[in-house]
Design a binder for these strands. Structure first.
Lengths: 167, 167
DNA sequence: TGATAATTGTTATGCATCATATCAAAATAG
DNA sequence: CTATTTTGATATGATGCATAACAATTATCA
């Protein structure tokens, strides 16, 4: 599980009285100004919190993104969905297997092109997605707005999107 | 290699005239407003560019961060360095083996505590780090400033650091 | 002091992610 | 009709990340 790392840190925090005690704490130096470094660390934290908020539904960020896409774009095939999410087709197969085995989505053989599958959410899938959205909004994103402020949060997302697209 | 994905995309870009052609392009929906999603994608792009810039020195972001830390904090042991970088000690062993086999750093048995190693950069390690810093500044970070502007870039790093620490 | 516990580096191992090659079935191009 | 391409799928390997366990060493404390 992904909580273990946090639990590990928490365990250390309970023993501040040791030779351990950060021993003249280490200098990060230019590391703290490196975008890649902060980016990676922030991403891990965000995913960790996402998993925590989504624990009752047992959805990973990747799975959530698939459900969102299928909801907005019903009937697309695996290649299309996988491509827009940056998932390689071979790896997307097992992922879909998992969602399908939980009856969250379904593969429907296309009549036009019998190689491909139309992907759709099941009713259960739609229900789970609706609950998931609420959890994300209420627990995850709300906490972000609290930490950064709505304006800053929007600006942050904007800059990240710009990097993701134009870099 | 990590370039292959980009090469793959490039290959597709050369064939815009297919049934493929993004076929009434897929709606991202609320995905584009999800911080976790943009964060992950931006992080991948940044790491990809970092690797490209650092190709002549063959340093990964993780390796670069280790060299930086060793430079600023010579004589620390493996546990200390690994902990501050969020690397688990078992995984740090192989990583150090790699750097040490390239003569970039060295493990020096401590006389006070013969269990631990003092970690230091070799002369070659210092030289490589110096070149690496220049590459990062000239190629990588410069491009970011160009895309976002220096002020926005600083604000971005600040917000990410806040998330990484306080979330 | 001496028995017990904790720490350090290490190995082994498992799981998840990611990437490539390859394949059969089906569709498309020429 | 033949050759190529596309789709979903399988097998496979590399890498990152996490846990358990171990020997050597050090710290704790009764």
């Amino acid at each position: 599980m992904t909580v273990s790392r946090a639990a590990n840190e928490a365990a250390k925090a309970q023993h501040p009285a040791r030779k351990d005690a950060e021993d003249a704490s280490i200098e990060l130096g230019e590391l703290s100004e490196l975008l890649g470094y902060t980016l990676k660390r922030a991403q891990l934290k965000i995913f960790e919190d996402f998993l925590r908020c989504m624990a009752p539904l047992q959805l990973t960020p990747a799975q959530f993104s698939v459900l969102l896409l299928l909801d907005r774009n019903p009937g697309r095939n695996q290649t299309e969905i996988a491509n827009t999410l940056g998932i390689l087709r071979p790896n997307f197969v097992a992922m879909l297997d998992g969602l399908e085995s939980r009856d969250l989505c379904a593969r429907i053989r296309s009549v036009n092109d019998r190689r491909s599958h139309h992907l759709v959410l099941t009713d259960k899938g739609k229900a789970v997605l609706a609950r998931a959205k609420k959890l994300v909004a209420a627990k995850h994103e709300a906490r972000l707005n609290e930490l950064l402020g709505a304006d800053n949060r929007a600006a942050l997302v904007g800059m990240l999107a710009k990097i993701a697209e134009q870099f």
